[in-house]
Each structure stands twice: as C-alpha cells, then as structure tokens.
C-alpha cells in the first residue's frame, strides 16, 4: 500500500507525520518527495548507500540538419524555444531556454528534419539509503532549478510495493504535489485548526477529489486555533484520522531533530492507530468500489 502525506499549507507537520508513522510500522519504505526542501533525513538519519543524478531531457539542435522551419517553437507548450530564420546570408539560429523546458519531448518527436535530439540535463540528485529495516529514498532539486516533477518521478521509480510505502509530499496544490501523490492508495492531509490551515485544506481536498484518491485528515496542534476545520470535515464527510496535541514535548524533540516516537514510545500506538484508521477506510472504499 502507498500512503502519501500531503497538505495544502506548508509547515503543518507532513514530515512529522510521515517520519513517525514510518518509525511506528514494520517493513516500511519512506520516500521524501519534497525535493525542493527534503528534510525527512534530518529525523531519520539514514545511511545513504546509493546516489544517482536526476535529469530532465532537453532538446539539442543539429544545426546541419535544421532548416529553421519553426515547428519546434510552434509545438512547445512552455514557450521555451525561439527560431530566428536565416536572413541576408546570415545563418539562422534556434534558441532554447532550458529553464522553461518541461522535457515533454514534443519538439524532438515532431521535428520534420529529425534535427533535434534530447540530452540529459542534470537538475538534481536522488539518494537511497536505509535505517535499520526501513528503506529510504529522497530527491534534491538543484538550487536555481524550477522543475521539480521530473525529480519527484525519479524518486518514485524506487517504489517497492512489497513494503508499506510512505510518501512525504511537498506542500501546496500544484504539479509537484500531484506528481508526488498520484498513484497513492490513500492520502493523509495534515492541517492545523487555523483559518490558513482550513483555507488550504479545502484546496487540497478539491485536488484529491479530482484525482480520486481516498483521503482523511490529521489535525496537528489540535488544541489551539478554532473548531472550523472539524466543522468542515464533518460537513464534508471527511474522516479525521488523528489529532496531535500542541505539546512542548513534540516541539522540543522536533527542534532537536528527534522523532517524537523515539523520545516517547507511547506515541507509537497513536501512529499505529492512524495506520489502522487508514486501512479501515481504504478497505471500506475498496469494497464499495467492488459492489
């Protein structure tokens, strides 16, 4: 089973939930897909055993074959190509802006002259490791690069379905989140009981309903703020899977980079309970679908 941990709002406790859930279960693989700011390794301190470049295919023009017809520019959905035709005996040129390229391959596929080949451009790194019996994978996007989905996809290539797979997703509701969450059997939305938490939770719920992934909510710092998140979940029939208290103990262990389940073993039961809640809802959803 693949469980992803996401949230509309940043800083709600995705990594806290992902890491502590992973440490509370057996036979787990954790993938940190927040490739712009991976931080699960700070808490897990895995032994890194493998390292691989994360790449995106970008076009390279063979000027000998190119006749500057402009087809590549026309088909580029990201406006990353300009073609300056030959003029007054001056050679033409094709300008490629790799920072805008999403690596979709349309230009090389549709070039009538076969003048475009794709070369791998390094945009980040994928590291694999382990901590005791837990498998660990994360990606890191290079500073200055804008395109995180290719790195996330390359992290997800390591998914091992013989394990319980936990994906720590990036915050937000756009392409990186969808890339991270897609294919999950269940998604945990971590939120906080504040107007900001609620606003971004509603956005994240819209995304998950659209991509049809069953989900539930974890309310972090549950004893502060207001009751609007709970009211919303009740109204929308969204299960609340767990409430994490606003506790000094959790904050202190977080600030020291120590997962709270390692500091206070009683939290393990709470995260196992979260897992059981997820399994219950997942089974119910599956049996509804079969009917």
């Amino acid at each position: 089973m693949i469980i992803s941990i996401a949230s509309g709002k940043g800083g709600t406790g995705k990594t806290t939930v992902a890491v502590n859930l992973a440490l509370s279960l057996q036979n787990v693989q954790i993938l940190d897909c927040d490739v712009e700011e991976p931080n699960a390794h700070i808490f897990l301190k895995p032994k890194i055993i493998g390292e691989k470049k994360a790449v995106i295919p970008v076009p390279e023009i063979d000027e000998a074959k190119c006749d500057y017809c402009g087809k590549c520019r026309e088909v580029c959905a990201y406006h990353a190509i300009a073609v300056v035709p030959a003029n007054d005996g001056k050679k033409g040129s094709v300008l490629i802006f790799p920072h805008l390229c999403h690596g979709c391959g349309a230009c090389s596929l549709l070039c009538p002259k076969g003048a475009i080949k794709e070369i791998d451009k390094e945009i980040g790194i994928i590291e694999t490791g382990e901590k005791e019996n837990m498998m660990f994978v994360h990606g890191r996007l290079n500073v200055g690069e804008a395109m995180s989905p290719p790195v996330i996809r390359q992290v997800k290539k390591h998914i091992n379905l013989s394990k319980t797979v936990i994906i720590d997703a990036p915050p937000g509701t756009s392409c990186p989140v969808i890339t991270a969450v897609k294919g999950s059997d269940f998604c945990v939305l971590v939120t906080e009981p504040t107007p900001f938490g609620l606003n971004d939770l509603i956005l994240a719920v819209e995304v998950l309903r659209k991509i049809e992934i069953p989900f539930g909510v974890v309310i972090n710092r549950a004893d502060i703020g207001d009751g609007n998140v709970e009211d919303y979940c009740e109204k929308e029939n969204i299960p609340i899977l767990m409430k994490i208290p606003f506790s000094k103990e959790i904050a202190v262990s977080y600030s020291e980079g120590i997962p709270v389940v390692e500091r206070d073993i009683s939290y393990q039961d709470k995260f196992i309970n979260l897992y059981l809640n997820i399994c219950g809802i997942k089974n119910e959803a599956d049996s509804c679908r079969k009917r």
């Binding site: 520019r73 990201y78 406006h79 990353a80 300009a82 073609v83 300056v84 805008l100």
Partner: peptide, 19 residues
C-alpha cells in the same frame, strides 16, 4: 497574445518581433 503566458512571454514576443 503572449502577455497571458505563464512563462516564455518575452521569448515569444521577441520571436514575433523578429518574424
């Protein structure tokens, strides 16, 4: 029309001017 682009507006406006 390029003014609406999320990205690449300058590139494609440059392209239009060149063409």
């Amino acid at each position: 029309a390029n003014a609406q682009f999320q990205g690449g507006a300058g590139i494609q406006s440059g392209q239009l001017v060149v063409s």
